[in-house]
C-alpha cells in the first residue's frame, strides 16, 4: 500500500477525471475528452473503466466487477484483485451489496438502486465511427444533432434481413439530444439504462468519458413501423430456470451438446440459493452446481 496512492492513480489525475465525470453528468451522453493515463494493463482490457473506478472509489466503498455478467472470469477477477490491493476496498459479488460496479458488456439483472454507481468499460465511444470516419465531422454532427446516418444503418439492417439485427452496442438517444454508444451491452439491456443508479462510461484508448445521470431518458433508436425489440434467446436458464434473464449459450461437449445459462452469475447463483432449479440441473446435478 505504501507504493501507491489510494486506488493507484495520483491525486491530480483523479481530480482531472472527476472534472470530466462532472461535465459528463451535466451533459448526459456527451463524450468528454480526458487525459487518459497508461494503466498497468493492456488497452482493450478496461483501462477506461479502471480509471473511472479509481477516480470515484472511496475507502468505504464495496466493489463488484463483472465481465459479460460473470464475476469469475479473468478480466473481472484481475480488476477486482487490482483494486483490493491498491485501494484496500472491500469487494463483493452480490449486486445489491456493491456501491460501485465496474462492468464489461452487461448490466446486472438485479435492478440497481440509488447510491450505486455502474462503471462501463467502453472500447469505441463514438456511435458514428463506422459511418463517418472523420472525427471533426462526427463532433459537428453531434453538436448539430445530425443523426440521419444512424438510421441509415438501421435501414440497411431491415432492408437486408427484414429486421434490425444490431444486437449489441445498440445506439441510444440520451435525454433527447446526444446519440450514444451504450458500450457493447446486449440490446436486451438497453431498456434498463433508465435506472436509479449513476452510469459512468470510460474509454481509455479513445480518451473519452460520458455519463447518464439517474432517471435520464434513454431511447433506443428505431423506426415507427419497426419498433425497437430487445432480444434474448427463447430458452430458460439450465441452472436456475430463469425465463427473463439474458442467457449465454455454452458448448458442453464436442458432440453438439450445449446449454443456455444466465450470463449474470450472481443473479443465477442467488436464484439457486433460494432453491430454484433449471432443467439442466436434474440431468447433471453434480458437476455444474
Amino acid at each position: 500500500m505504501t507504493e501507491y496512492g489510494f486506488a493507484y492513480l495520483d491525486e491530480p489525475t483523479k481530480r482531472m477525471i472527476r472534472r470530466a465525470l462532472l461535465k459528463a453528468l451535466a451533459v448526459p451522453g456527451y463524450q468528454v475528452p480526458f487525459a487518459s493515463r497508461e494503466m498497468p494493463m493492456p488497452y482493450g482490457w478496461g483501462t477506461g473503466g479502471v480509471q473511472v473506478t479509481a477516480a470515484i472509489l472511496m475507502p468505504e466503498d464495496r466493489l463488484k466487477v463483472i465481465d459479460q455478467g460473470a464475476d469469475d472470469t479473468t478480466n473481472a477477477v484481475s480488476i477486482r484483485r487490482f483494486f483490493a490491493r491498491v485501494a484496500g476496498v472491500e469487494t463483493t459479488t452480490a449486486t445489491e451489496d456493491a456501491t460501485v460496479i465496474q462492468t464489461r458488456h452487461r448490466i446486472p439483472e438485479t435492478p440497481l438502486s440509488e447510491g450505486q454507481i455502474l462503471v462501463y468499460q467502453v472500447p469505441i465511444p463514438e456511435p458514428l465511427r463506422f459511418l463517418e470516419p472523420r472525427e471533426p465531422e462526427t463532433r459537428r454532427m453531434h453538436a448539430l444533432e445530425e443523426y440521419g446516418l444512424m438510421h441509415v444503418k438501421l435501414y440497411e439492417d431491415i432492408a437486408r434481413h427484414g429486421r434490425v439485427t444490431t444486437s449489441y452496442a445498440y445506439p441510444v438517444r440520451v435525454e433527447g439530444h446526444y446519440v450514444m454508444d451504450p458500450s457493447p451491452i446486449p440490446a436486451f439491456d438497453n431498456p434498463k439504462m433508465e435506472m436509479d443508479a449513476i452510469q459512468l462510461f470510460g474509454a481509455g484508448r479513445e480518451q473519452r468519458i460520458y455519463a447518464i445521470p439517474p432517471h435520464t431518458k434513454v431511447v433506443s433508436l428505431d423506426f415507427d413501423d419497426h419498433p425497437f425489440e430487445p432480444g434474448r434467446a427463447p430458452q430458460t436458464c439450465a441452472l436456475c430456470g430463469a425465463a427473463d434473464s439474458y442467457l449465454d449459450e455454452v458448448v458442453t461437449d464436442d458432440a453438439g451438446g450445449r446449454m443456455f445459462v444466465c450470463s449474470d452469475t450472481d443473479f443465477c447463483g442467488g436464484r439457486r440459493a433460494r432453491g430454484l432449479r433449471g432443467p439442466g440441473l436434474s440431468v447433471a446435478a453434480g458437476d455444474v452446481a
Binding site: G148, H151, Y155, A159, D224
Partner: peptide
C-alpha cells in the same frame, strides 16, 4: 454516394437526415 450502403439507403439518407422515421415510407 456511400459505396457501402445499398441503393435504397443512399436515396433514403437525405430523408432520414430530415427526420423521416417510417421505414415503409422511406422505402
Amino acid at each position: 454516394l456511400r459505396m457501402g450502403v445499398s441503393a435504397g439507403g443512399n436515396v433514403g439518407e437525405r430523408l432520414m437526415e430530415g427526420g423521416a422515421r417510417h421505414y415503409g415510407n422511406i422505402r
